[in-house]
Design a protein around this nucleic acid. Sequence first.
DNA 1: GTCTATATTCCGATAGAC
DNA 2: GTCTATCGGAATATAGAC
Lengths: 183, 183
Amino acid sequence: MTTRDRIVALADDLIRDRGINAFSFADISEEMGIKNASVHYYFPTKSSLCLAVIKRQQVALEEMISLAKKSAPLDRLEQYMSIYDRSKEADRVCLVGSLAPDLHTLNEDIRVALKEVAARILEWVTEILEEGRDEGVFRFGGNARSRALLIVTNMLASLQLTRLTKSEDFSIIKKSIIKDLTS
Amino acid sequence: MTTRDRIVALADDLIRDRGINAFSFADISEEMGIKNASVHYYFPTKSSLCLAVIKRQQVALEEMISLAKKSAPLDRLEQYMSIYDRSKEADRVCLVGSLAPDLHTLNEDIRVALKEVAARILEWVTEILEEGRDEGVFRFGGNARSRALLIVTNMLASLQLTRLTKSEDFSIIKKSIIKDLTS
DNA sequence: GTCTATATTCCGATAGAC
DNA sequence: GTCTATCGGAATATAGAC
């Protein structure tokens, strides 16, 4: 992994651990054994670093959507949920859920990119639900996008809320979502 | 309203607007037309101020629960949801949803208080759902607490996600929750 | 209870050598 | 591409006068 990539990966982890406004270039440079100024060589501003983190997430998301393309709807939904599994294991929240509360402190570039991510996730989940209903494996009321809104909000907030309640609550939420759809 | 109360109310608004780590004592003192040091007279540390904000929320929550006590389950659920209505109108997220992503930057006192709030909300919604099901006005699968987890995560994240998607999505989520329970 | 003044620390960012 | 050195600013917090 290049130095640049390591910086972005570390920033991603810090944002999802403590929030964008609670980490510094020093956190990154110290962890990497380089100097503050070296991080600025790659990312002149904190905003540019944050934007790179979001762009990286966009790429990863498209990759995952592509890879999952041939799977059945239920498998695809479980692959979507597995994103949050990995976050939960590390006690991280998701990127959208970390940045949305701080949105009013972020510049326009970042807001736009984040909106793209949110829209793409919703689009993907909507697609999965539609196909699942057409195939008769999912049952749910309302249209697919409304149902996707419910599921995405469940997953986003599950990482936040279960920092405060019992950890098992995360898997209760996941299982409830699947059960609601399949019974 | 006393100066102290105004400070706490302003801090609450700032936390839910931009996050705990993105506002300063200056934001509060300037808005109130007093000096930085005067805010410190009431709250020696930022942590003590944050704790006061959470305690205030606890009081407001108990008040609302008390007042709603005699209402029917569906009314009570709508009163619960109306908390988020008011936040959405002001483009604020909820307190739990603002602080949970930053939890690892907060001290133990605050974490404990925040866990109490989350537990109390869950307890209340669970109670409403149980009673509604007993009375035959709500229908849902799984136990009441699991269902409460789904609804609370829907509401918490709706404020965050709809900062990024269409504003109407907030009311779509709300209506979907009610419809799922009552049909 | 509010003020002025300031200590202290930290952070984002840049200049310029190597 | 990484370093040393540092600037400028902002933030939390405190001392002490009024």
